[in-house]
Amino acid sequence: MHSKVDGLIRRAGLRYPNADLRRIDLLDERGLNRQTLTQLGTCSFVTRQQNVVFQGFTGSGKSYLGCAIAKRACEHRIRAHYVRMPDLEEAWVAAQDAPGGAGKFLRKYAAFTLLVIDEWLLDKPTESMRTMLLELMERRYGETSTVFCTQYQQKDWHQRLGAGVHADAIMDRIIHNTTWVDTGTYNMREQTALATA
């Protein structure tokens, strides 16, 4: 039984494979809502094809939370995958050089029941990347769930997505059925470094 879960976790490519929602530190200092995290941990949002955004400052634990959610999904036998946006862009650029590569790429990333995109909008996407994101979000909309980990508040997304029709369309497919979690300004990396110093 466990080998199936272990396999799902291994293939999910988590940045923090040991991330655990039950071991999130300093909830109060960080302003994190325990009830929201517990609710997300049930993975019922995946069943409802809803999205989650973890938004907060650098070091506030967004990537850890994204990995913890993906790991919980794997424990629920849900096929999850973690990817950093710069790596997603690199994979997209490479895919376009292969015959049928673009379609294959989109099918692959559309198929994950839960996709965690970390460092969302850290770099402004190119036009080609925006076209791909629109197609990917269109395919995932109402079928699957996506978790976005980002430093940027919703009001900044449109500008970072190029502020045109692609930006409107991408946001339209993300923001309406989404749980927004503010991870705050508390720097967990700094805290961890101090604790181990």
Rank of each mutant, 00 (worst) to 15 (best):
D156S: 13
I117Q: 05
Q50Y: 04
G56C: 12
Q159F: 13
D25V: 12
F148N: 03
G101S: 03
L122W: 07
N177P: 00
H76Q: 14
Q159Y: 11
D6Q: 14
Y152R: 09
G100H: 06
V147H: 01
A12P: 02
L133P: 06
G41L: 06
G41E: 12
G184L: 10
G184E: 14
S60H: 07
W92G: 04
N33W: 00
R23C: 15
H158L: 03
V116D: 00
L194M: 13
G100Y: 11
L14P: 13
E135D: 13
H81G: 08
L106Y: 07
A163Q: 04
G66M: 03
E138P: 05
W92V: 03
L65Y: 06
G61V: 03
D97I: 02
Q154S: 05
K104F: 02
Q49E: 04
V116S: 02
R34N: 13
Q153G: 11
G56K: 09
R22K: 13
E89P: 00
R22W: 08
F105N: 05
M188I: 15
L32P: 13
E89I: 12
R79A: 06
L122Q: 07
T47N: 01
G100P: 02
L26R: 15
V52C: 04
R140G: 02
Q50P: 06
F45W: 06
A195R: 08
K124M: 06
E138N: 11
L21W: 04
P125W: 09
L136A: 00
M129I: 12
A102F: 09
T146H: 11
V181R: 10
H166S: 02
R15V: 15
M132Y: 05
T144K: 09
T113L: 07
L161H: 01
G162N: 00
C149D: 08
L121I: 07
F57N: 08
P99E: 12
G13C: 14
L14G: 14
R173A: 04
V52Y: 03
E75H: 06
K124P: 04
M85I: 15
E75F: 01
L115Y: 01
W157I: 08
D25G: 14
A95P: 09
V53N: 01
R11F: 10
G142V: 02
I24L: 11
I170Y: 11
T150H: 08
A167P: 05
F54C: 06
G164Q: 07
L134M: 04
V5C: 10
D97L: 10
R48A: 14
E138L: 11
G56N: 10
P86T: 14
D182S: 11
L136P: 01
A102T: 11
L37I: 11
T131E: 11
F112V: 04
